[in-house]
Design a protein around this nucleic acid. Structure first.
Lengths: 187, 187
DNA sequence: AATGAAACTAAGCGTTTGCTTAGGTAATAT
DNA sequence: ATATTACCTAAGCAAACGCTTAGTTTCATT
């Protein structure tokens, strides 16, 4: 018995996510979100509460978006080879034009550091933990690997992803390929 | 034949740098700079032109600050061992309280990406090139190393520093040590 | 067709942003 | 001592920020 929404929240969040991904949180204004999402500020605030709310939902949308390449790793059973493929898949995933957009979660960790609000920080930490677990799962496919080394390698790969994320935004393809090859030369 | 400045530009820039380092560029307002630098907005603008000018000088001050650990690497002749020490020195250099501040240049690259103004971008790129050159210089101390591998390793270490920088801000000491040990396990 | 509830538009709220400027102050050269 | 010149204080500028709200439109239900 009332007017129906002229947009799907999922659709407009997808667009908001792209904007946050390219510009970061602070550099993305609500006016910019209006234009990109194609809806008015009233609708933004009634659907998501505030800018922070739009961002949280954008982070969740980013996770879903990343599922495409995460599932490849999830279904891989080549051990370290699958993880290496994930690194390359991520590079492709992040590519925009000449330069990449990095990982939205890593970008956010860098921008807000430990000043992120608790609910956002939780979301960010959950993400990195999931990636890390996925690395461990794949590393375990080599049954000869000792537990001690496995832990070290998981930590190594997790931090290496941070480097790849930032690298994808400022370094050229050749440099990034050298990086990935060396990361997995050593593991 | 006029009034003398009540502050040294070098001193106030040092304080500005600290603020930018902790908060990033956008999240640091001119009002905050006023308080931290201990001088009035008029003085800030007459000395440095605008906020961007303060930041450029802060980046330069950061480079000088980093000279303490860069000179150690410059004077090292242990090849890869010296570079590994540099990674650890950097961790110590970046430490604030429980969590690190990362590398100001890396933080800026992440925040502004390729949207940084040309003069700033030049300053940032010069910095990373200098670090990279220093890595190459130290890698060459192993005369058996082939040119092909040397280039790859330099690229690897440069991107690895990006990971260490972001890692220092969000990961614990144990994780970071595992990371460094793995980076230098085979190089 | 009339009703009522939710969605939309657009104007505007108070605050903060980077930056400027008028007026008073202090230090040096004569 | 006085004049001169640059520095400092503090108030204020327009624009942009996140967010709200009054007024209108739309549509499912009766």
């Amino acid at each position: 018995m009332s007017r129906t929404k002229q947009y799907k929240e999922q659709d407009v969040i997808q667009k908001a996510m792209g904007l946050f991904w390219r510009n970061g949180y602070e550099a993305t204004s609500v006016r910019m979100l209006e234009k990109e999402m194609g809806i008015n500020q009233f609708s933004i605030y009634s659907s998501f509460g505030n800018k922070h709310g739009v961002f949280i939902e954008s982070i969740k949308a980013y996770k879903s978006e990343l599922n495409s390449i995460r599932n490849i790793l999830k279904n891989s059973n080549n051990g370290i080879v699958g993880i290496k493929q994930f690194f390359y898949d991520f590079l492709e995933f992040t590519r925009e034009n000449e330069v990449g957009k990095g990982c939205l979660v890593c970008n956010t960790l860098s921008e807000l550091g430990n000043k992120a609000e608790p609910d956002l920080m939780l979301e960010l930490m959950m993400f990195t933990d999931e990636i890390r677990s996925l690395f461990i799962y794949n590393l375990k496919q080599d049954e000869n690997k000792k537990v001690e080394l496995l832990k070290k390698e998981a930590n190594f790969l997790t931090t290496s992803m941070l480097g790849l994320s930032l690298g994808s935004r400022v370094q050229n393809q050749n440099q990034l390929e050298d990086y990935i090859e060396m990361v997995f030369f050593k593991v």
